[in-house]
Design a protein around this nucleic acid. Structure first.
Length: 307
DNA sequence: CGCTTTTGACCCGCGC
DNA sequence: GCGCGGGTCAAAAGCG
């Protein structure tokens, strides 16, 4: 059995319950898409190359202490768009989630209103209500590649497939999934790389507004949710905000070993001592050392002017 | 029976 | 304006 699986993102957040997916080398890479509006800034193919070797090559190192990037990453052209990212996509799960919740609510309301107002004729299939002229808000997206035989990787959440489309220039279709939780509008797309069919590209969009159905909260140092020790929102959203978020947590854990983040990170590292050594996160925004405030999550270090 | 998947149609933005 | 491609909807089918 040689199947290699992704590191589940909720595990990266801090579950202490995984051991069986870890191998010495993770064919795993991810980049972030902070696109705003319709244009995507995903560029992982150019960024990562087309071979599996590329995915596991050290795009930057994650030394256990410094977390310093070994080298600037390529595909800089993609980085400009991150600047359009509204403030702090991931510095606070609360703010991020709440702002999105507002958007979702607005969209839902608009939709409901539209449906009520328009009431298209019931000829044929009922048409979708027309969208308002405002541009569709696209949530921050996170994409990563996984070497896997299965398309739909288990990630701790329950998903319902709502669509499948053929992808241009690819023999493999793209599948669209939505989180089954009612109030949660997280989506993900799954498709195979046409350059390497063993690679599955998964793109998450949005943030879960609920804990993972299969990830018990006591993983986090046994602190009950809302107890004031470990807030539920800190750890019950395994969907990645950005990888740098986790690196921040890790960094924070080095600075202040009493922060709640440590419960997650330490548990993670305790169970997976090779994680930092082996995991090659490929993201422009992830490799940051200095504290650049909120921008630190979204702007690559070499784009920040040294002062 | 309830939930999920399938799948064709539709919507929408964008480029020409 | 039109066509294309990506994304979504929703009825029907499938499944446990």
């Amino acid at each position: 059995m040689e199947r290699k699986e992704m590191i589940k993102m909720e595990e990266l957040v801090g579950s202490s319950s995984f051991t069986d997916h870890i191998s010495d080398s993770y064919p795993f890479s991810g980049i972030f898409d902070f696109s705003e509006g319709e244009k995507s800034s995903l560029g992982f193919m150019e960024l990562l190359g087309t071979g599996v070797q590329d995915y596991t090559s050290p795009l930057f190192d994650l030394p256990p202490i410094s977390m310093a990037p070994s080298a600037p990453l390529p595909a800089v052209k993609e980085c400009s768009e991150v600047l359009n990212q509204p403030a702090t996509p991931n510095s606070s799960s609360i703010s991020s989630a709440s702002s999105e919740a507002v958007n979702d609510t607005e969209q839902t309301n608009n939709k409901a209103v539209d449906q009520e107002e328009e009431q298209p004729d019931k000829t044929k299939k009922q048409l979708k209500p027309k969208k308002t002229n405002q541009k569709r808000q696209r949530e921050p997206r996170f994409a990563f590649m996984t070497k896997s035989e299965v398309d739909h990787l288990e990630d701790g959440y329950r998903w319902r497939k709502y669509g499948q489309k053929a992808v241009k220039n690819s023999p493999f279709p793209r599948s669209y999934y939505r989180c089954t939780t009612a109030s949660c509008n997280v989506k993900k797309r799954v498709e195979r790389s046409f350059t390497d069919p063993s690679i599955v590209v998964t793109t998450y969009e949005g943030q879960h507004t609920h804990p993972s159905p299969v990830m018990p909260r006591q993983n986090f140092a046994g602190a009950p949710p809302g107890s004031g020790g470990v807030s539920a929102t800190s750890f019950t959203m395994p969907m990645p905000r950005t990888l740098s978020h986790y690196q921040q947590q890790y960094q924070q854990s080095l600075i202040n070993p009493l922060t709640p983040s440590n419960f997650a990170i330490n548990g993670l590292l305790a169970n997976n001592p090779g994680l930092l050594r082996d995991t090659r996160f490929c993201t422009q925004g992830a490799a940051l050392l200095k504290d650049h405030g909120l921008l630190q999550d979204i702007v690559p270090s070499y784009m920040l002017k040294e002062e």
